[in-house]
């Protein structure tokens, strides 16, 4: 998937739409770090931005596509993977990246996630997990930690929490990874590996929502939140990828799953080419 290897040092202004600045993210929001890591990884891999298609859903994460100097599609809530599936099948020459959030990807869009994992079409899905519906005012999401306060869990969250990576791996994703925004270099390298992967790659980025989630739960400012996220992770050093369906106390980071499996687009094109050859011979 490398178009050319970058010789120049990474400059973020080469990859964002400066005219769209200032961005609308809150001070302290981790999403900007994830965006920077994506663009940096793209630069390192030498991906041509004319050939990059970024498809996003709805929510704070959904707004990031507008800031990227590429072919960008801000779609409907929960559906970016469905749009991206059509785009990637119709245009296998494009690098397709989906940017989504925990609510967008795991709640309203959950069905599309598991089937995208199963299908293994060539694209990268970046799920920015800030444990909250930030844009709509801080409602509980499928990844909100236990007992946390949100505007729809005024007495604390009593619902169990999804482990998105366990879900993606169980559904057949051929590349699954997780990183926190505190570890910028590791996040960039992991994103690059996901982009390079031939097939469906899923990346969970642990992001922080300081203004809404942090404030409501007295989690401190952004640095405190990021440090606490980092300390609740452990770099992955074990062979097993999925131990329990719900989130344990210490989450693994790094590449959690990587398997060689037929990429769906190529498999489909091979099948149809065979059919055409057969019908021509007849």
């Amino acid at each position: 998937m490398k178009d050319n290897i970058a010789a120049e040092p990474f400059e973020i202004k080469d990859y964002i739409r400066l005219e769209q600045m200032p961005h609308f993210l809150c001070p302290g929001c981790g999403h900007g770090i994830a965006l920077r890591a994506l663009l940096w990884a793209m630069h390192d891999l030498g991906i041509d931005k004319d050939k990059l298609a970024v498809v996003s859903g709805i929510g704070c994460s959904g707004r990031l596509s507008a800031y990227i100097d590429a072919n960008t599609f801000h779609t409907t809530h929960g559906r970016p993977l469905a749009y991206a599936t059509g785009l990637a099948l119709a245009r296998p020459d494009l690098h397709v990246v989906v940017i989504t959030g925990d609510g967008d990807c795991l709640a309203i869009g959950g069905n599309h996630l598991i089937h995208a994992c199963r299908r293994n079409l060539n694209m990268t899905c970046l799920m920015l997990n800030n444990e909250i519906y930030g844009m709509t005012g801080g409602q509980v999401s499928p990844t909100t930690s236990s007992d946390r306060y949100t505007t729809t869990t005024p007495a604390g969250n009593t619902e169990p929490v999804f482990d998105a990576c366990a879900l993606a791996a169980a559904a057949g994703a051929s590349f699954v990874g997780r990183e926190v925004t505190m570890q910028v270099n590791s996040l960039k390298d992991l994103t690059a590996r996901a982009l390079e992967h031939d097939g469906f790659s899923f990346l969970e980025v642990i992001s922080d929502c300081t203004e809404i989630y942090g404030r409501k739960n007295d989690l401190g400012a952004s640095p405190e939140m990021m440090l606490s996220q980092k300390s609740s992770m452990r770099p992955f050093a074990y062979r097993n990828t999925v131990d329990v369906p719900f989130r344990p106390n210490a989450l693994k980071t790094g590449v959690l799953c990587q398997v060689e499996r037929a990429e769906y687009g190529a498999a489909y094109r091979e099948m149809t080419a065979g059919l055409r050859k057969k019908s021509e011979a007849e």
Binding site: A82, T85, L89, A90, R91, I114, H115, T272
Partner: peptide
């Protein structure tokens, strides 16, 4: 030389059609 896909639901099939069309097909 076209592409057919049976999606996971009705919503996804509409999304995929729009995605393909945004790609110029």
């Amino acid at each position: 030389g076209g592409t057919f896909i049976q999606m996971e639901d009705e919503i996804a099939s509409m999304g995929a059609v729009i995605g393909a069309s945004m790609g110029g097909v």
